[in-house]
Write a protein that binds this DNA or RNA. Structure first.
Lengths: 405, 405
DNA sequence: CTGAAAGCGCTAACAT
DNA sequence: ATGTTAGCGCTTTCAG
C-alpha cells in the first residue's frame, strides 16, 4: 500500500485527484432504499464511492480483511467482520465490485447465449422459449447468470460477442456460416452448440432430425398419403419466401432443416413418390402466419394434396388455421403434422414429433459447466418420439381404396 | 511498464512466473475453428494466452497502439493496424478481454433482469415472455446484453445479485419484501421496477391495475353477474393454495394482485354484492392447472356461481379447461375472464384485459438507458383495454329475468 | 500518430 | 487471524 498523502490525516484513499470524467457523475446524489423502505444516501457529494481499499484504510485494517469479510467469513473473527460490514453500510460501500472481482478471479459467473434468430420470432416460438427455460434453470441451479448476447441477424455486429463477459457460450441453432458463431469460437471460452451447426471439435447437443422425420414420414406413408406438401423454415440466411428447389433443399445452411427434408424425401421416394414434384415451401419468418401462407400456397398449387408436413409446430398451427379458413376439416380432408411438441400443439391435438427441448437447454448448460480438461468433443443426441394426435388420418382417396368395392 | 527481466531478450511479457493455479489450464491445448472451418491452435502449450501487452511487446509497439487497433481504428495507420491484427491472429490473441475492459471503462455493456418468480412458471407465462421479448429487443437495439440474474425464490441467495456485472437492473414483478430487490437497490446502478412494487424514489413502469380491473368488473356487472368467484395469483411469499381471506386480500405483498382484488371488491360491493361472501381462491403456482383446480374449488363451494374472474389469462385458460371438464358451456353456463391479453387467450376468444406487456419491457430498457442525471423518479403508466371475447355473456338467471314473463 | 505513466477495484499467495 | 505484495488486462490522459 502506498504511503498516506498527508501526515496527520488518515489514508482514506480519497485523496486522489478527481479525474475530469467524474464531472456530473451520478454518485454525487444517488439515493437508494434499503430493505426496510428507508432512504439511504449512497455516497457523499464530491467524494468518490467507497472501495474496498478506502474502507480498509478507514478502518485501519488491510484490504484482505475487508475482502475476507465478504468472501470468507470464516477467515476472520465475527466481531471484526461485523465492524467491517457496519462501516461498509455507514459509508455506503456496496460490496466488492463484481467486474473487478471477475477480472481478478477470471470468472464471470455467467454463460452467454447466442440466439441469431430474430428475437421476436425466437420469443414467440415456445420451443425456443422452452430451450431457454431449460438453460436458465440449469444456470440458476448453478448460481450462474445467463447473458443474452445481442446478435441481430441483419446487422452483422460482432462487438457484442467480443464484449460479453462470460465463462462460456451456448449457441442456439444458427446457420453454418453465421459470423457471430465464428466470433464466439474465437473467444477463449468453452462453447456448446445446440441443434446446428455440427462442427468438428465443438461440443453439441441436439436430436437425430433425420430419423425423427423418417418416423413421421413412415407414419404418413402408412396412413396412405402419397400426395403431400411440405412447409419448412428458412434454409439460408437470405429471405426466400417461395418454393425451395431440390438444390436449395440439399444445400441448406441450416442442417436441421436439411436433415428433415432429406429424410422426408428419402422416405417418400422409397414408396415411389418423385420428390421433385412435391411442393416444398420455404418461409423466412418463423411464425403462425408463415405456416398459413405457405399452406395456402401449397393448396393453391395442388388442391389434391392430402397431407401438409410442417417442419415445426408453429408452422403447423398456421397450416391448421389455413385449413379452417378454407373449410377443410382436419384430418378428414387434410392431414397436418408438426415438429417440436410445444404445449399449444398438444392442446389442439397436433400429430407431431416431440423433442425434449427443455432438456436440450439443461444439457447445454451442464456440458459447459462440466468441461473435462481433455475430453474429446461431446455430441449429445437426445431422444424424440412421435405423438399421434388427431390431425393425421388416412386420406379420403385411400379410404375409398381400402373400403371400396 | 517495468524493466525487462533479462538483458538480451525482448520483454515479451511471458517471463513472469507461472502461478500454481495455472496447472492443468485449458489453455495448454485449446483448439478452435475459425470462420473458414479451419482449426486454429489457440495458444501454445506452457505459454500463457496472449494479452494486449504481450502482443504489443512482440510487435515492439505500445499497448496504446494495440488497444487503438481494436477500439479506435482511426487513431493509427491502416498498415500498422493490419500488422497488429495479423500478429494477433498469429499468436491467437482473441482481442481485448471484456472483463478487463469493463473494469477500466466502468461499463458492463449489459442490463440485469431480476425475475423472482420460479423460472419454470415465468417462461411458461406468455405475458412474462413477452415482457422479456420487449426488454431483449430494446437491449439488442442498443447493443446491450441482457443478463438473467439467478434468483431462486426458495433459496435466498443474494450472491448472484452482488456478482452481476451490469450497468443497471430491471426488476420484474416481485413482492414488496423481496430480499433480492433490496440487494439490487443497494447496488450503485440505476434500477427500474416493472409492475411491482411501487417504491418512492425508484423508476417504475406498469399499468393502472385498479382501473383496468374496474373496467372488467363493470363489464360483468353490466352483463348481470352478481354471483362470482375469483381466481388470483399468489398474494404473499408463502404458499397458500386456498381461499384468501379479506385480510389477506388487503394486505397482499404483491400490489398488482391487491389492486385488482380491491377494484373488483369495490365494484361489486357498489352493486350490493357482499365481498366477504365471494370466494377468492389463491394459487401459488402460476399455471393452467392452478387455474383449473381453483375453479374447481369455486364451483364446488358454490355451483350457482355465474362468472369466474381470473387475474391472469393463464389462470383463465385453466378455468376454461375445468368448465369443459364439467360439461359447462362457456359462456352460456359459465362466464370466464382473464387478464393480460396473451396470444393463446386471443385464439380461444377469451374476454380479458389487454395490457401492453411487450411495451413494458421496451420502456424499462429505455428508462435505464436514458438516465437523466437529476430527474425525479419516473413512473410510467401504460394503457390497457378491455377485449370482449366470447367467454363472457349474461348469466342464465338474468336472461330469464330479462326475457321471462 | 505513438508512447509512458497511472491506475480501474479486487483477490490470492505467501508471510506473520 | 490478519497483513504484505503483486498483479488480473485493459484504457486513458497527457506528452511527444
Amino acid at each position: 500500500m502506498r504511503a498516506p498523502t498527508g501526515a496527520g490525516r488518515p489514508a482514506t484513499g480519497h485523496a486522489r485527484k478527481i479525474p475530469a470524467s467524474w464531472r456530473g457523475s451520478p454518485w454525487l446524489h444517488q439515493l437508494v432504499l434499503n430493505r426496510y423502505g428507508h432512504f439511504m444516501v449512497r455516497s457523499i457529494s464530491s467524494r468518490r464511492p467507497a472501495t474496498l481499499a478506502s474502507l480498509a484504510a478507514e478502518l485501519g485494517v488491510s484490504r484482505t480483511t475487508v475482502s475476507n469479510a465478504y468472501n470468507r467469513p470464516d477467515q476472520l473473527s465475527p466481531e471484526l467482520r461485523q465492524r467491517v460490514l457496519e462501516a461498509a453500510r455507514r459509508v455506503g460501500y456496496p460490496g466488492p465490485d463484481p467486474v473487478a472481482r471477475s477480472l481478478r478471479t477470471r470468472k464471470a459467473g455467467a454463460l452467454g447465449l447466442l440466439l441469431t434468430e430474430n428475437l421476436s420470432y425466437a420469443f414467440r416460438d415456445p420451443a425456443a422459449v422452452s430451450f431457454l427455460e431449460g438453460l436458465a434453470l440449469s444456470c440458476e441451479a448453478a448460481g450462474q447468470g445467463l447473458l443474452l448476447v445481442p446478435a441481430n441477424p441483419e446487422r452483422e455486429d460482432l462487438a457484442a460477442v467480443h464484449r460479453a463477459g462470460v465463462d462460456g457460450f451456448v449457441v442456439y441453432s444458427v446457420p453454418d456460416d453465421d459470423p457471430h458463431l465464428a466470433a464466439v469460437l474465437e473467444r477463449p471460452v468453452p462453447t456448446v452448440v445446440c441443434d446446428q451447426p455440427s462442427l468438428p471439435g465443438v461440443d453439441t447437443v441436439g436430436i437425430d432430425d433425420g430419423s425423427a422425420m423418417t418416423g413421421m414420414a413412415d407414419h404418413l406413408i402408412g396412413l396412405g398419403h402419397r400426395r403431400v406438401g411440405v412447409v419448412c423454415m428458412r434454409l439460408g440466411r437470405d429471405r426466400n419466401d417461395a418454393i425451395a428447389s431440390l438444390d436449395r433443399q440439399r444445400s441448406a445452411h441450416f442442417h436441421v432443416q436439411r436433415a428433415r427434408l432429406v429424410a422426408l424425401a428419402a422416405a417418400f421416394e422409397a414408396v415411389g413418390v418423385p420428390w421433385a414434384q412435391v411442393p416444398v415451401v420455404e418461409r423466412f419468418d418463423h411464425s403462425v402466419e408463415s405456416g398459413a401462407s405457405a399452406t395456402a400456397r401449397i393448396l393453391d398449387l395442388d388442391p389434391e394434396i392430402t397431407a401438409v408436413v410442417c417442419t415445426s409446430d408453429i408452422l403447423a398451427l398456421g397450416a391448421l388455421e389455413e385449413a379452417r379458413r378454407r373449410g377443410l376439416r382436419v384430418p378428414q380432408d387434410l392431414t397436418v403434422t408438426g415438429f417440436d411438441g410445444i404445449a399449444e400443439a398438444e392442446r389442439v391435438g397436433l400429430t407431431t414429433v416431440v423433442q425434449p427441448v427443455r432438456d436440450k437447454g439443461a444439457e447445454a448448460g451442464r456440458l459447459l459447466r462440466e468441461q473435462p480438461d481433455h475430453g474429446r468433443p461431446r455430441k449429445i443426441v437426445l431422444p424424440t418420439s412421435l405423438r399421434t394426435g388427431s390431425t393425421a388420418a388416412p386420406p379420403r382417396n385411400s379410404q375409398e381404396r381400402w373400403f371400396g368395392p
